[in-house]
């Protein structure tokens, strides 16, 4: 199986005043193409740090991160932004939509940064919103949408540049259980189509829907369900 993400002996150290905190301590793992994985752990376990490092939002203090076999060590912020734009689609707990823009414009943003022309941008964003079932909500702003609809917009935005990996941070955390199930069904559908998906969560029932659960505790891997 092909690896999409490889973390090779990764440590992330924060300095808080005189104190040195190991948020991640010698972590190694692989995420395979087409897999559905959850990274689980209580708050403060280091799972947010692992998410930012997998998503290239942060860089490890030691160790290497490979995305599509490409080593990201020593990359500039510009190169990392390119990887975030083309290879990773983020879905956040609180949706992280830009409030002054319509659903359609929000979905267009990654294409804007990829240098796609306006007309093609619009077409691809529309196509994505249709795919997540929001064909009648394209011109609505986030404050005119329900929580489930907002998360669908966020998923459409994560998918629009056809990334190698969908990285979802507590994607059902701000939704009621019914809406949460609907969103999870959408993720399962995407996984069946071949998308590689990683959830970062503390929710055991969400994690249990995945083929593989990686448990994190105190900055290290406690259990890898592989």
């Amino acid at each position: 199986m092909k690896e999409v993400i490889v973390l090779d002996d990764v440590s992330r150290i924060y300095r808080m005043g005189d104190e040195i905190v190991y948020a991640l301590n010698h972590v190694s793992l692989c995420i395979y193409d087409g897999s559905l994985t959850s990274i689980m752990g209580p708050s403060g376990s280091g799972k947010s740090t692992i998410m930012s490092i997998i998503g290239c939002l942060d860089v490890p203090t030691y160790g290497h991160v490979l995305i599509d076999v490409e080593d990201t060590s020593g990359m500039s912020e510009k190169d990392l932004s390119y990887i975030r734009n083309r290879k990773i689609g983020f879905v956040f707990q609180h949706f992280s939509l830009l409030p002054k823009m319509s659903a359609l414009e929000n979905v267009e943003i990654p294409l804007l940064y990829a240098g796609v022309r306006p007309k093609e941008r619009r077409e691809r964003a529309e196509e994505m919103l249709v795919r997540v079932g929001l064909s009648d909500r394209m011109k609505h702003r986030p404050n005119e949408l329900s929580g489930g609809q907002k998360q669908r917009v966020a998923i459409a935005r994560a998918l629009v540049n056809n990334p190698r990996l969908i990285l979802a941070d507590e994607p059902t955390g701000a939704l009621d259980s019914t809406t949460g199930h609907e969103v999870m069904e959408l993720f399962h559908g995407l996984n069946e189509e071949g998308k590689t998906i990683v959830f970062v969560t503390h929710d055991r029932s969400l994690a249990s829907e995945c083929q593989r659960i990686i448990s994190i505790r105190d900055g290290g891997i406690e259990d890898d369900g592989l």
Binding site: G55, R84, N85, S96, P110, Y113
Partner: peptide, 14 residues
């Protein structure tokens, strides 16, 4: 907003 834009691939120069 800047964080979101960066997560979505905005380079510092952008």
């Amino acid at each position: 907003e800047i964080g979101i834009r960066k997560a979505l691939g905005a380079a510092p120069s952008v």
